[in-house]
Design a binder for these strands. Structure first.
Lengths: 203, 203
DNA sequence: TTCGATATGATATACAATATATCATAAGAT
DNA sequence: ATCTTATGATATATTGTATATCATATCGAA
């Protein structure tokens, strides 16, 4: 017997059936890190869709063909970046769960501000923004809202909260973060959480 | 004397300095209409970014090179579509200005429902969605909100109203329009207009 | 530390799509 | 009616994607 699969071929969330690569190998992690960083930098320099894979590999100082050993295309690489960001935000927000909305909002905007370049790129991609909103909506529906008998279906309420939050983040980034995270947290609470909560109950 | 510029070279909003084409010529209008229709159809069939210009020209039954006589690239063609949609919605909403929010919302969702294919494509493009939200925000800021002394800056309030509305439309389209326009108009009023108005005043 | 496994670099190449140029023809404008 | 111009057809330069191959370097495990 040949010892059952000692290696770890985990492609992110197991969705992509395509390129397999041992993510425990230092070389692999190094290459993927370099590629991700290059994509972010180049996207901020000249826009996501005009960045070529040759651009990325040259900036990352990595062989051109190496890219395709890890990802099928640019979008798959960018999705990897989103997964990392989502995991980080989740572990940031989980401990603070149940705190008051303004404090939660402050945490969110503090994180976004500290990773503004990556977030700018991610929120510039429609597929990733959709994915983000979908995941967030599911989470919000699970967490709160054991409500009923409103004009507005709970599914829409959850979607509205998440989509509005993402939009607020986008506004903040596009305007070069003119207010500090604490102020944005307060705005988040006053503009999104509080009114929507009231609507879900009474409306 | 040679008669000063009898022709009309209007490239949409005069922004693109690139391809000039007499938009009063029937042939031009016909070609552009065919190209736009082909792009919409193909995008719904297999996704915007994998649609090639050759696809478009073949579906439109138009010479390949002809495309570049009208647009630099796919995105410019799609922007043309957005301009038409925006103009139509504007003339739909202007007469009803000042009516109650639910009625306005019903008008909006009725229009979206009747043009769901085009709207699906447009709201799937991040640059166009941004443009739409920016224009809408300016309009809302001009219309209403002579307010002051709130935690939430009026600029953010306006942005929130528009972005939330677009998000609600996106939700509706993505879920295959499960409620009629009248219901969506009521939801729009209860979820977005009424709470945000209250926040802008009191919050 | 050694050894087998494997990720990488460098290179060549097939292929697809963009973008432009040219010229004859057909369609529209006046 | 005729002058203008948009189109079709075609060729071509250019760019970017995607895959294959082989020697080398790096890694993990014993």
């Amino acid at each position: 017997m040949k010892r059952a699969l000692p290696r770890v071929f985990t492609r992110n969330s197991g969705k992509s059936d395509g390129v397999l690569m041992n993510v425990e190998d230092r070389r692999v992690k190094r290459t993927q890190r370099l590629l991700a960083k290059a994509l972010i930098t180049l996207t901020l320099e000249k826009g996501y869709d005009v960045v070529t894979i040759r651009d990325i590999t040259e900036r990352a100082d990595v062989g051109y063909a190496t890219f395709f050993r890890h990802y099928h295309d640019k979008d798959e690489l960018l999705e990897d970046v989103l997964d990392v960001v989502l995991a980080e935000m989740l572990e940031l927000l989980l401990p603070a769960n149940g705190a008051d909305p303004a404090a939660m909002g402050t945490l969110i905007f503090r994180y976004v501000g500290e990773h503004s370049e990556v977030c700018r790129v991610l929120t510039g991609s429609m597929p990733l923004t959709r994915k983000l909103i979908t995941l967030g909506t599911q989470s919000v529906r699970g967490d709160t809202l054991p409500q009923a008998a409103s004009i507005v279906p709970p599914e829409i309420v959850a979607h509205h909260i998440v989509a509005s939050s993402v939009a607020l983040i986008q506004w903040w980034l596009e305007h070069d973060m003119p207010y500090p995270p604490e102020r944005m947290g307060a705005i988040y609470a006053a503009l999104i959480v509080q009114p929507t909560g009231a609507t879900a109950l009474s409306g």
